[in-house]
């Protein structure tokens, strides 16, 4: 289990990146949702042992890794949000070097090259194995990053915005890989794509302004607002009014008309709106608004369906 208790991170400024995060994460895929600047990457870097928190602890299977980050590294596969590689190496050489640094071998010690080839196959990068990394596209670099993250038998995999730069086919391939891995280990997935969490994660947390505002599962999140989401079409002028008076969770343009979804907990939707099934995105947007309001109002309440 990955246990995070009272995690606080304050940067000089001062900037409070994390304001006391408590999470208990078991095996499986765990999602971290939140807007840009919420503190997701800060949290991930602390768990990965790259950043020292101001206070709080993080333990992995009982080992405290905040004071001794070198305890987590043998058990970690990490794909950061922003990263690079040594440009003069080929993809194969780069991967092989990282495998050596991680102490990862194939069944036969002499087959590191074969292992690299197999891993590159997993991410559909074998064709470029002998090309220098400097000639890789953004998506190819991302895939190479995925390859090194999934290598070995890491107890904990942290992937920060893993699908950035990937085309839909590659996204699906990555999802399959991560799902396979999550069966027997902790996979911490940070993303602002709600769809990814909905598809992959059995549980997720929502962070905003460094605070945990939800710790729940997709089904519970949806259930919490079931019967409160209504959908209808409005004109552009009406949409503006609606935004002022209602809690709009989605507004997309369809054939020149705005199809809008609103959250109406009291059950009195605008005229012409019909109830629809709540999506995780609806739930996320409601949490964002609720969290914001609660923060503005000085109240911090338990997120719907979530543990504290």
């Amino acid at each position: 289990m990955l246990a995070i208790q009272g995690l606080v991170k304050v940067y000089p400024g001062p900037v409070s990146a994390l304001q006391g995060i408590d999470l208990a994460i078991e095996n499986g895929m765990f999602g971290l949702l939140g807007p840009n600047g919420a503190g997701k990457t800060t949290l991930m870097r602390i768990v990965a042992g790259l950043l020292e928190p101001t206070s709080g602890t993080v333990t992995l299977d009982g080992m405290e890794i905040t004071k001794c980050p070198d305890l987590v590294w043998p058990r970690l596969g990490y794909l950061p949000q922003e990263f690079g590689f040594y440009p003069h190496l080929t993809g194969e050489q780069m991967l092989a070097y990282l495998l050596k640094m991680k102490g990862i071998e194939g069944p036969n010690r002499r087959e590191t090259r074969d292992l690299c080839a197999a891993l590159l196959d997993q991410v559909n990068l074998r064709f470029a194995a002998r090309r220098k990394v400097r000639s890789y596209s953004g998506g190819m670099r991302q895939r190479l990053g995925v390859a090194q993250a999934i290598a070995g038998n890491p107890r904990l995999i942290i992937v920060d915005e893993p699908t950035a730069g990937l085309d839909p086919e590659e996204r699906l391939r990555l999802y399959r890989l991560l799902a396979e891995l999550a069966a027997e280990r902790i996979v911490l997935l940070s993303t602002h794509i709600v769809e990814d969490v909905a598809v992959l994660c059995s549980r997720f947390a929502v962070i905003r302004d460094g605070k945990l505002i939800a710790d729940t599962s997709p089904s519970k999140a949806r259930a919490a607002i079931e019967g409160m989401i209504f959908e209808g079409e409005v004109t552009a002028g009406e949409l503006d009014d609606l935004r002022r008076t209602r809690r709009v969770t989605e507004a997309i343009l369809v054939e020149g008309r705005n199809r809008v979804r609103v959250h109406e907990p009291a059950g009195s939707p605008p005229p012409g709106f019909v109830p629809v099934a709540a999506t995780l995105e609806d739930a996320y947007l409601v949490m964002m608004r609720d969290g914001n309001d609660r923060v503005r109002g000085g109240m911090v309440q338990a997120a719907p369906g979530g543990a504290k």
Partner: peptide, 17 residues
Amino acid sequence: RERNTGIASIYYTTPAR
């Protein structure tokens, strides 16, 4: 080199001492 190339986050989280 690791910071310049951007590989630091990955490199420094390997178990190599």
